[in-house]
Design a protein around this nucleic acid. Structure first.
Length: 884
DNA sequence: GGAGGAACGTA
DNA sequence: CGTACGTTCCTCCA
């Protein structure tokens, strides 16, 4: 039943913050609670298999062969289910060398002997043989909560034979899941017909010689299989068990223990269901009363009512909004406010002057605490609506959920309601049935349902924020939430609203330049091949390169052989074929063309590009940028840098300033590892790679060659990513032996770095997570996977997460400091972009020096490490010109 | 029209 | 057989 639940419920929706999947536990518990409530049993027991091995595999080694490996995510849930059963006061049994069904068969037989009536809930059809007047099978139809009752009559109706003959039928038909082949060509219909006609399998076997036709011959040919199946599918009814029937009496469930367990599993609805349905069987502390439902008194605004409503608020107000929001702007359709069981709904475009004034005052008042779901889009809308200031945002449920579970893909309100409150969110289409509507005639008003749904959303946001606050506190992440992520949303909103000025003419120029080169490369390639083809199609390229031109095969991909730039380069080195040059040139220039085309299309009417920074996408804590992504604008090639020249200073400002951390991740590594050699290299070294190379190769810094430095640089950077010896050798173009030797020498000199990297992974395996210097967590359930590839990927991610994540923490802290300082110092300069370790700012006239020292100060003091946080800055008319 | 893969840009 | 992302194009499928 647990296994069925595992496949019936989506794992993504049932897992705890720390990555423990709970879908099987949840489904099993849910089914069990239903059963306990509906059937009111006097005695209950749950049987488990011990292992796949049993007396059946001894007789027939291929028994259950062909089943895949039991998924790791399922295995880890079994001990939890046993814990759950303990908390529920329900006995659970196992028996070495036997299967769970044998235990069930034994208990059913004993119950029958004692005159009890027995219910079996099992997803294994073998249990059908146990059905009789005193024994009923509840067999899952769909998922695990819908069960079909099999009495002897039901069995006969469905299978055409009585339960005591079911084994005969199963032996003939076979059981694919157990790897027990039956008689080919004989299905349940023929089998039932034979059994009815000859009374039993024994009767049938006696007359096997007389059976006509193909089916008869088939039976004769496979008689041994059938007899084997029949022996194996017999459940054992007389096992010796540790517990007799008296020990299985169900006395009730422990309130304290189930609360503790459900809390740990982050189940909310189940505890309430236990309370509501099985209160009379609760043991221990009085059951917690059923929690207040989402009933909210929702009122649509009557003119002048907003001021009164807001004046009546004493605590934190939860705010839900609807509307259209994109690229640093937006407009509201509705806003709903909820506080203490009452809610107010309004269309902000319809406010009268008095309401609008009190609304704007309330928004700007930092003492009026607000919680929202996605503050950033709200801030865009507020800016577009002309509400000058929004202060007092005490929590954002999207960001809270991200800190608790940074790998999650969606933080939609409905998902969070399920995750944190254990309930579905009411919508206009499926309203909560107990909702009450005040101030509106709910009866036939279409809008009423919407009002109520929005009010319920606001109320849910408040509740979610409360649950999150508790969990964040347990993890000591209140500071990370309240002093970093929540206030950072406002900083990002300002950056997005401002945008960065684009030089459309410049973009247009280089776009046509790239387009011409792209066309030329395409034409040349067609010429060389002697016909036209789609140069952008890897599939067609493969045909041409590997079939027609018979070039050596490259590394495999899922769909064939790679044609990526690395591979094309290597092919060119081997073959010198002129086509490869054109392909590489095409790829290069076409990519640049596409980037410019996209950038042009995102320039808004204000002549600026307004990206969106996502704060909840990267599991490490970094930001991401979309629509367009301004964190991956080319910089490495000269042609690429021409694109950066199109991001320019706007009128009213004197220049752009770029300012970045130098080698921040290596510095963090030096600090976290405490490696004296590396720290020393940073404290004194002008050129860190040269300093490290000098130590590794035991030469004076002045004698370090370019080749030494290049190798060390690759090695140093690779460390933080878990680069393997093989990977290092590939990157440096040397043998693995040489890469191994380099690695050995490196670690001989910087031993603490290796110790640290091992320690991080070890620790993560123990606790399940890694932590950054500011307490941001990332969980790694895959570290214990049986699959080597999966496990090793998790190991690399785990050793990178604290380094990349700490760098993200530091930059976020710096951005908050810069934002605060700009405002208190009254500078007009502003931050436009963040590119992980770099900020791009727009410098107001005469502010260059003050801005630089202010930002430098904030960036270098954002954290105290064992090494200095070095920052470098440059100024110019464009992003390219401001490079340094 | 959507999904998935390949490719490639950044830190 | 190096982490973290987003975008684009092509291909396949419904």
């Amino acid at each position: 039943m647990a296994f069925r639940a595992f496949f019936a419920l989506p794992a993504e929706k049932f897992s705890t913050d720390d990555g423990q999947v709970t879908n099987a536990v949840y489904g099993f518990a849910s089914m069990l609670i239903n059963l306990l409530k509906a059937e009111e049993p006097s005695h209950v027991a749950v049987a488990f298999d011990v292992a796949r091995h049993s007396f059946r595999t001894e007789e027939y080694p291929a028994y259950k062969d062909g089943r895949g490996e039991t998924p790791e995510e399922f295995k880890t849930q079994i001990p939890i289910i046993k814990e759950l059963l303990d908390a529920l006061g329900i006995a659970w049994l196992t028996k070495e060398n036997f299967e769970a069904d044998d235990i069930i068969a034994t208990l059913a037989a004993r119950g029958e002997a004692e005159g009890l009536s027995t219910l079996i809930s099992s997803g294994d059809r073998d249990a059908i043989q146990l059905v009789n007047g005193a024994v009923t099978l509840l067999y899952p139809v769909k998922g695990v909560t819908e069960l079909k009752r099999y009495t002897p009559e039901e069995v006969e109706e469905k299978y055409g034979v009585t339960p005591d003959r079911y084994r005969d039928l199963a032996a003939l038909v076979g059981e694919k899941a157990d790897n027990l082949p039956g008689v080919p060509g004989v299905g349940p219909k023929t089998a039932a017909k034979w059994i009815v006609k000859y009374g039993s399998l024994d009767g049938l076997v006696e007359k096997a010689d007389e059976l006509p036709g193909k089916a008869g011959q088939s039976l004769r040919d496979h008689l041994d299989d059938v007899l084997r199946n029949h022996r194996l599918n017999k459940l054992v009814r007389d096992l010796e068990l540790e517990s007799g029937i008296p020990e299985l009496a169900w006395e009730g469930w422990s309130v304290a223990e189930t609360n503790r367990l459900f809390d740990a599993l982050q189940f909310r609805a189940l505890g309430e269901r236990l309370n509501a349905n099985l209160a009379d069987k609760a043991v221990g502390a009085a059951p917690v009363p059923v929690a207040e439902t989402e009933r909210v008194d929702a009122a649509a605004l009557v003119p002048g009512g907003l001021a009164d409503w807001l004046a009546g608020c004493e605590g934190t107000v939860a705010l839900a909004y609807t509307g259209t929001f994109a690229s640093g702007a937006g407009s509201f359709d509705s806003i709903a406010l909820a506080e203490g069981g009452r809610a107010l709904w309004f269309d902000p475009s319809q406010l009268d002057a008095e309401d609008e004034r009190s609304w704007i005052d309330w928004l700007a008042d930092p003492a009026k605490a607000k919680v929202v779901h996605d503050a950033k889009a709200f801030l865009w809308g507020a800016d577009a609506a002309g509400w000058p200031e929004v202060a007092g945002i005490a929590a954002d449920t999207v960001l809270g959920a991200y800190l608790l579970k940074p790998e999650q893909r969606s933080y939609a309100l409905g998902d969070l309601a399920m995750q944190f409150l254990g309930r579905e969110l009411a919508t206009a289409e499926t309203p909560a049935d107990d909702g009450a509507l005040v101030g509106l005639d709910a009866a036939m008003n279409d809008g009423a349902a919407q009002v109520e749904a929005d009010a319920a959303a606001a109320a849910a946001i408040g509740e979610i924020a409360a649950v999150q606050a508790e969990r964040l506190e347990q993890r000591h992440q209140e500071h990370l939430a309240g002093a970093m992520e929540y206030p950072l949303a406002a900083v990002l909103a300002r950056m997005e609203i401002i945008g960065i000025a684009a030089d459309e003419g410049h973009f247009a120029d280089i776009e046509s330049g790239f387009a011409a080169q792209s066309k030329e490369a395409t034409d040349r390639a067609h010429e060389i091949v002697g016909r036209s083809f789609n140069i952008g199609s890897p599939k067609q390229l493969q045909e041409i390169l590997f079939d027609e031109l018979d070039m050596p095969k490259t590394k495999r991909t899922k769909t064939g052989y790679t044609t990526n730039a690395d591979a094309l380069q290597q092919l060119f080195a081997k073959t010198g074929h002129p086509l490869l040059e054109q392909l590489l040139r095409y790829r290069d220039v076409e990519k640049l063309k596409q980037i410019v085309t996209t950038l042009r299309s995102t320039i808004q009417t204000d002549g600026r590009i307004h990206t969106t920074f996502f704060q909840t996408v990267a599991a490490t804590g970094r930001l991401s940028s979309t629509d367009p992504n301004l964190q991956n604008i080319p910089v490495r090639s000269e042609a690429g840098r021409a694109i950066r020249a199109g991001f320019v200073v706007s009128s009213g400002f004197e220049s752009l300033m770029t300012i970045d951390y130098s080698q921040i991740e290596m510095r963090i590594m030096a600090s976290l590892t405490g490696d004296e050699g590396l720290i020393e290299a940073f404290v004194q070294g002008e050129d860190i790679h040269r300093a490290v190379a000098a130590k590794v190769f035991a030469v004076a810094p002045g004698e370090v060659t370019a080749e030494h430095r290049r190798k060390i640089k690759a090695m140093s950077y690779g460390l933080a990513y878990g680069l393997s010896t093989y990977g290092l050798s590939q990157q440096l173009g040397v043998s693995t032996q040489e890469a191994q030797q380099l690695s050995d020498e490196y670690f001989a000199r910087f031993g603490k770095v290796r110790d640290y990297l091992h320690r991080v992974v070890e620790e993560a395996r123990k606790t399940g997570y890694t932590e950054t210097i500011m307490g941001r967590r990332r969980y790694f359930p895959d570290l214990t996977s049986d699959n080597r590839q999966v496990r090793e990927m998790a190991e690399r991610a785990a050793l990178n997460a604290p380094i990349q994540g700490s760098a993200a923490d530091i930059m976020k802290t710096a951005m908050l400091g810069v934002d605060r300082a700009l405002r208190t110092e009254g500078l007009a300069s502003r931050v436009l972009l963040q590119v992980h370790d770099e900020l791009v700012c727009e410098v107001a006239p005469g502010e260059a020096d003050r801005l630089e020292s202010l930002v430098r100060e904030q960036m270098s003091n954002a954290a105290t490490l064992a090494v200095p946080l070095t920052v470098s800055a440059g100024f110019g008319e464009s992003w390219e010109a401001a490079a340094h």
